[in-house]
Each structure stands twice: as structure tokens, then as C-alpha cells.
């Protein structure tokens, strides 16, 4: 029998390979963002684009506006929303020990849609919110409230993780029913507005929204990363993690708070974008494994990459038409996901 290489050295080599994969994801993201900015119905040569980015004053104002107020915010919004939803999704999957958990599947997006619908159809608005933010503020408050509900149930002794997930699914159906009711009573005009909102679109991007979302990510990612060993241990089961000294209740509560912020803000700004929060963590897990020190950033990068590529696709799928990106993520994300599942099944068989 040959002497096995030191297990530590072997582990460190695997770890370096994973960090390289992380870097590759980051590079792919940069390429995708560049492509996203370079793509658009107005067409624009790359040299012209670079010139506008370097010196916006040197070109006609309309071209500068297209790049600086439309293309760049859209492209960056895709990155930040994708990262936020994916980070929320991976944390949710770990702390609720359920591979199907995501902001979309446990009612956070549906709650946000209900909040938006109340603003759009009935004109209900929070006092003191600027008009441009009324729909987003409502959506955010409802998303926050739905996670707060899940959070309170998680604190409740004896309320197990399975019940929590079932409750989240029940939330989805209840909120959807209420949104349908509002659609039923809505006028032609507001109905169209509501449907467009729920489709999910990056067209609502703006620099101040970007700043808010970036701040939320800058707060949540490091806080989540500090818990990565505890979350990694939690994948071994709640009892085992607790016997290693992980305060599982507190970990779960803190994660749910981060999830509510991340998904609440993201959904409030761009509407319902499904599947990124569900699929990106799985793709990241297949690439880098379950060590959360790498998995958390890898999920965020994968989510950003998926939504960025979806943004490119949404501009190029139908000539001259900007398909709402929420539709694209579902159409493109699901077959992609199934392909990966099928491949890993085959590899492990």
C-alpha cells in the first residue's frame, strides 16, 4: 500500500482549488457585466462605450444618459439583486435544513407582492415615504413581516423546522390568493401595473437603490461569513451542531434577520425574481462543496452571475423587446439546474 499524502496537504490543495473556482466565478461575473453594459437596443460600439465611461462629457447627452442612467444601473442591479437573493437562499437552506428553502418558496416574495399590490391597487402607502418609493416600501415591509413571522415561529419551542417550512409554503398560497383577489378588483390600468411589478424587472434600477442594496450586502455578507463554521456544522444536523457548542437557536434567528433584509430590499426594488435564490446556492454547492467559508461567497457570486446573464438574455432573446428578467431566470435557470442535477446524479452513481 502506498503511503497516503498527508491529509492536511490534501485538504489544503482541495481548498486552493475551491478558491480558484471562486476567482473564476468572479471573472465570469466581470465578463458578464461588461457584456450586459455593451448590450442594448440602441446599439453602441465598444470604443464608443469606453469613451462614454471614461469621459461622459465628451459625447452627446443622450448617449451618456443611456450608459450612465440605464445600462450601468441595470447591469449592477442584476449583480446586487442576484447576490442578495442567493445569499438569502443559501442561509435559508442551511438554517432551515431544507434544500427547497428560498425567499421565493417560503413566502417572502409573495408577501412583498401583496404589499406592492396594496400600494398599486388600493393606494395604501406608509406615511412619509417619497412617492417613487411607495410600492417598494410596502413590498419591503411585507417581506420583513413575513420573515418576522417565520422568525417568531422558529423561536417558539417545539416548533420544528419541518413545520416552519410547511408554514412558509402556506404563506405563499395565502399571499398569492390575496394578490389574486386584488387583481380581481383592480382596474385595467392598475392591473397592468401590478402584473408588470410581479414579473420582476431590472427597469426600476437607480443609483440610490443600488447604494441601499450595496449597503445591505456589505452588512450581511461579513456577518454571515463570521458564522460560517457554525453553519457548516449545522449541515451535520441540529443535535450534532448543538453538541459541538453551536447556539443553533441564536444562529437561526440572526440568519432569518439577515434573510429578511436581503430578500426584502431586493424584492422591493425589482419585484418577484424567482429561482435565483433557490438555484444559485445549489450550483455553488456543486462547485465548491459545503464549507460555508467558501460556499457563502460562491453562492453570492453564482446568484450575481445568473442574474447578470439573464439580464443579457432578456435584451437579446427577442429583437427590440426587453423581456422582464424574472421570466428569463425561470426559463433559463430551471433547465440549467436540471442539467446539473442530472450530471451530479450520474457522477455519483
Amino acid at each position: 500500500m502506498k503511503q497516503p499524502e498527508s491529509a492536511v496537504a490534501h485538504y489544503q490543495r482541495r481548498r486552493r482549488r475551491r478558491l480558484a473556482l471562486l476567482a473564476a466565478l468572479a471573472l465570469a461575473l466581470i465578463a458578464s457585466v461588461a457584456l450586459d453594459v455593451a448590450t442594448g437596443p440602441s446599439g453602441m460600439a465598444v470604443e464608443r462605450l469606453l469613451q462614454i465611461l471614461r469621459d461622459p462629457g465628451s459625447v452627446p447627452r443622450v448617449e451618456a444618459v443611456i450608459v450612465w442612467n440605464v445600462r450601468l444601473p441595470y447591469a449592477l442591479m442584476a449583480v446586487l439583486v442576484g447576490a442578495a437573493l442567493a445569499l438569502a437562499g443559501v442561509e435559508m437552506q442551511t438554517v432551515l435544513d431544507n434544500p427547497l428553502a428560498s425567499p421565493f418558496t417560503l413566502g417572502v416574495s409573495a408577501a412583498a407582492a401583496l404589499g406592492a399590490a396594496l400600494a398599486i391597487v388600493l393606494g395604501l402607502a406608509l406615511p412619509g415615504v417619497p412617492p417613487a418609493y411607495v410600492v417598494a416600501a410596502n413590498a419591503f415591509v411585507f417581506a420583513l413581516a413575513s420573515v418576522a413571522l417565520l422568525y417568531l415561529l422558529a423561536l417558539w419551542r417545539g416548533f420544528g423546522v419541518e413545520s416552519l417550512v410547511l408554514f412558509g409554503i402556506a404563506l405563499v398560497f395565502s399571499f398569492n390568493a390575496l394578490v389574486a383577489l386584488l387583481q380581481f378588483v383592480a382596474s385595467q390600468d392598475t392591473l397592468q401595473q401590478l402584473v408588470f411589478w410581479t414579473l420582476g424587472s431590472l427597469a426600476r434600477a437607480s443609483w440610490d437603490k443600488l447604494a441601499i442594496l450595496a449597503a445591505v450586502l456589505a452588512l450581511c455578507l461579513p456577518l454571515a461569513w463570521r458564522q460560517s463554521w457554525a453553519m457548516t456544522a449545522l449541515t451535520l444536523g441540529e443535535d450534532r451542531a448543538r453538541s459541538f457548542g453551536v447556539p443553533v437557536g441564536r444562529l437561526r434567528a440572526a440568519a432569518l434577520l439577515r434573510i429578511s433584509l436581503l430578500s426584502g430590499v431586493a424584492v422591493a426594488f425589482v419585484g418577484t425574481i424567482g429561482f435565483v435564490g433557490l438555484v444559485a446556492p445549489h450550483i455553488a454547492r456543486m462547485l465548491v462543496g459545503e464549507d460555508h467559508r467558501v460556499l457563502l461567497p460562491a453562492s453570492a457570486l453564482a446568484g450575481a452571475l445568473i442574474l447578470s446573464m439573464a439580464s443579457v438574455a432578456s435584451k437579446t432573446l427577442i429583437d427590440g423587446v426587453l423581456v422582464p428578467v424574472g421570466i428569463v431566470t425561470s426559463l433559463v435557470g430551471i433547465p440549467f439546474f436540471l442539467a446539473i442535477v442530472a450530471r451530479t446524479r450520474k457522477a455519483s452513481a
Binding site: A233, T235, G289
Partner: peptide, 17 residues
């Protein structure tokens, strides 16, 4: 359900908490 390898699983036990 975990996707951890043996070495990582034991390392996480050492580092958790």
C-alpha cells in the same frame, strides 16, 4: 444530507462553537 467530506466534517466539529 450534508455534502461535507470526512476531513471537513471533522474540522467543522473542531472549529464550531
Amino acid at each position: 444530507r450534508t455534502g461535507l467530506a470526512v476531513f471537513e466534517a471533522v474540522l467543522s466539529a473542531a472549529m464550531a462553537g
